[in-house]
Design a protein around this nucleic acid. Structure first.
Lengths: 116, 116
DNA sequence: GTTCATACTTACTTTTTTGTTGGTATCATA
DNA sequence: TATGATACCAACAAAAAAGTAAGTATGAAC
């Protein structure tokens, strides 16, 4: 899953900036095609099941959805809540750390709505 | 330079979200490896020459620096000021639109510094 | 007429991200 | 015993982003 070349210039650059610059660090945790959408939906709707997220993220593939959920979970931004039942039921919600991004997300949304 | 496939799923998805979601739009204009660094330096230092930017953006290649400057200029976030002299002198500064991102950049920086 | 400084440019390669397709597991219900 | 519902996985392929290396142009100073 994590098949980055550890000593590529690309990775070296990203690592350098993640370590030296707050903005770069932040961007690395919420950047990419889908993460902010995920965070945004979870911010507004509290808890959502896997299938509900998939419906909302128009165009996303299972592969990406799972991958991004896993990354967000590993970064401590969301919780994964598993119900022991069949068929399976899994819900996702923001952690406190995830919710602490609210202001940034709101500002980004406002800026975008205004300038797009 | 712009060699995106116009009808790839990837591009279709990005376009859809850029049109429907403010956050996605914002992220598409400041995302990627280098743009926020550029904006950040220009925010703090007002005007910087091409060569000065290159020194600050440790690790960046000419190709990337030019490409990102051009994108930022086309999106109206920065001004390119050319002095008619040899050897050439070109400065870059934020536009009002660029400066309107300040709050977001500051918050991202704070969040990063706190959590990295 | 060669060198220097500066801001770019271009062809090409590598790396990373994203998408496609076709799976698996579980147990209740029909 | 077959079907359905849900969450997830894995091999492969395409697309996009980033990096490498070697250029160009200009006119002044040597």
């Amino acid at each position: 899953m994590n098949n980055r070349k550890e000593n590529s210039t690309n990775t070296i650059n990203e690592t350098y900036w993640k370590d030296h610059c707050g903005i770069a660090f932040t961007l690395s945790t919420i950047g990419g095609r889908w993460k902010i959408n995920l965070l945004s939906y979870l911010l507004h709707e509290e808890r959502l099941r896997y299938g509900e997220l998939r419906k909302r993220l128009v165009g996303i593939s299972e592969r990406m959805l799972i991958a991004k959920l896993k990354e967000l979970e590993q970064d401590g931004l969301i919780n994964r809540i598993v119900y022991q039942q069949v068929p399976p039921k899994v819900e996702y919600e923001l952690t406190d750390l995830g919710r602490s991004l609210e202001k940034i997300l709101v500002l980004m949304d406002e800026w975008g709505e205004k300038n797009m």
